[in-house]
Design a protein around this nucleic acid. Sequence first.
DNA 1: TCTTGTATTTATCATCCGATCATTTATTGT
DNA 2: ACAATAAATGATCGGATGATAAATACAAGA
Lengths: 204, 204
Amino acid sequence: MIVAAAARYFAEVGFSGPTRDLARRVGVTQPLLYKYFASKADLVEAVFARVYLDRLDPGWRALIVDRRRPLRARMVEFYRRYTDAIFTYEWMRIFMFAGLAGENLNARYLEHVRELLMKPLLAEISAAAPARKPDIEDMWSLHGSIIYLGIRKHIYQWPAPDDALPAIERAIDRFLGEFAPAARAVSPEVSPPRASTPPRRARS
Amino acid sequence: MIVAAAARYFAEVGFSGPTRDLARRVGVTQPLLYKYFASKADLVEAVFARVYLDRLDPGWRALIVDRRRPLRARMVEFYRRYTDAIFTYEWMRIFMFAGLAGENLNARYLEHVRELLMKPLLAEISAAAPARKPDIEDMWSLHGSIIYLGIRKHIYQWPAPDDALPAIERAIDRFLGEFAPAARAVSPEVSPPRASTPPRRARS
DNA sequence: TCTTGTATTTATCATCCGATCATTTATTGT
DNA sequence: ACAATAAATGATCGGATGATAAATACAAGA
């Protein structure tokens, strides 16, 4: 209960938020927090583990390298799942707070993303790209165009589409149009029926 | 001197940084700050004005709508100038801190960007796009892919190219390849000589 | 009911923070 | 040289903050 409330709390106010306010939210007194965490930094570390390390890569990599499926479908579904996992108030804001505070969380996480997700994705596209092959910077460019949707919504609190999927599909199609035109959607139109999509974003 | 030091200081530690440390940097005592600013919030507002409102749009819009020049050249030069202006430690981090703190700076600034930069850019591309026309979300997608370079460098402190220009050119060419193929660079190669480019990023 | 160990609270410490005020030092005008 | 004004400082206040220690509430087993 403490870690869950702390994740929400630190996502709102940052790591400099006083522990007394956090304790009030949990419904306990402030000294009790120090029964379970030796220091405030310990509690922050527990929040990191809960929000990031725990929900890392539930089959994302396997999805990317599954060549039985068309490349575009794999990319769209990967980014759909990925953004479903990270386009949340807590994930986005704690990640930004950590970056600004100089925590090494971001470097650790992004190294993971690069090695386990971006490089495999790059390999898949290169395998399907007859002419010009993308490099890792092209991958980060695509990645950034998608992540920016979450930044607009959760950091800038600036209107962004409720459903990120159409924008994601268009970004992916533009990307494939450059590197693997044969793999992109036949029609420039967006979002085929979306038959077996599970209900998105259960809360918030 | 106070505002300049405050911009640097708040960019490093955020708006919750104590005014005493800031005063020490300026080389004065802390109460003196209150001689020039009624409150800490006033000082923060002055930093906003210095870092954002002041350096807003030095001819960017005029550059975008100047149809005597080819579309691609206008887009590349606009984003070169734009990123030269905002890809700085202070600009990037204060913008993020402000967003996380719920300041309205971000909304104000992004509305400005949308109305004065993105919509004209959209109109220029639409005018050159024979078939499929982009919408404003496509513009934000391109924008995000470029901004993400600055976020990686200054927020996540994660390796990013020293010179953002090649990545910007490739993103723009991919974009034009989708919407206005005739306007994009003839060769997929990057960055012609860059003859009359002024020395970039004078300090840090 | 009594005991024992744990969970939680009350009370508190030392420190830090934004802000104020009286006083001293520097600058300017004549 | 001297008065008037501005600039800067030292001391400090009330409140907040991370952390600690002692006291109390609570549950389980005898």
